[in-house]
Amino acid sequence: MATHVTAGTQTLAELLGAARGDFASLAESLRQHEAASSSDFATLLTGMRTSFINPLPREDLYALGQLLNETSEILTGAGEAIELYSLDRIPARVSDQLEILSRQAELTVTAMKSLNDLDSLEDYWLEILRLAKRADHTHRVVVTELLDAHSPTTFVKYRALADQLVFASRQMRAVATHVGSIIVKES
């Protein structure tokens, strides 16, 4: 599911630079990533119910899967904000938000492949927390700049996009925090 989040961030990056005519197809691509994530989550749930032995406690696998799946849903919301509001002049700081989120997603893909070696995941946990703080700061700056540069109506439209990106970043932080709790619990 983490790979679907990464694919979603890549599609969002395309969407930020796309012409209005391409918004619908790229937003549909985001919905497909979300559907694939939901399918993988259902497969995970079935696998956990039918397996006698799981690599981690079931509740931990469920929580990680749920958080990653919800992140895909949030990314779809960001794409739909661009599509529905026809946001074709994306501020540079919003791109900064997406860059931070993309880095979180890349690190999470690697971490999810390493769940069998929890000792190697402490750096991941701490780096995601650091990136999440940076994402929160960037969001505050984005909101301030949007407020200064736009009418109230336009501000609300761009703020909806910026909010979705910070929500996705916070979800990635929640994934890392849960990995941190697994590290502590299993040590």
Rank of each mutant, 00 (worst) to 15 (best):
S102V: 03
S25E: 14
D88I: 02
A24D: 14
R134I: 05
S39T: 15
S29T: 14
K113S: 14
S95G: 15
Q164T: 11
K157M: 14
A81H: 01
A168N: 03
Q97E: 14
I82E: 00
A2V: 02
E14Q: 15
A42R: 14
S151P: 09
T3N: 07
V166D: 14
I74R: 00
T43Y: 10
S102W: 02
A36C: 10
A24I: 10
T110K: 12
I90P: 01
T46D: 15
I53F: 15
T110N: 07
R58D: 14
A35L: 03
A81N: 01
V179N: 01
F155D: 06
Q164N: 11
T43Q: 13
A7K: 11
G79T: 03
L101I: 09
S72H: 05
L118H: 06
T9G: 01
P91C: 10
L56M: 09
F52L: 15
L129H: 08
A160F: 04
L101R: 01
F23Q: 03
L45H: 05
I53H: 11
A19P: 03
L16G: 00
G47Q: 07
H150A: 11
Q171L: 09
V166P: 03
S151T: 15
D117C: 07
Q10H: 12
L121P: 02
S102D: 06
L44I: 10
L129M: 10
R140W: 09
L68Q: 03
G180C: 06
S95I: 05
L98Y: 02
E80S: 14
G21I: 04
S169C: 15
H178C: 05
I182C: 00
A7S: 14
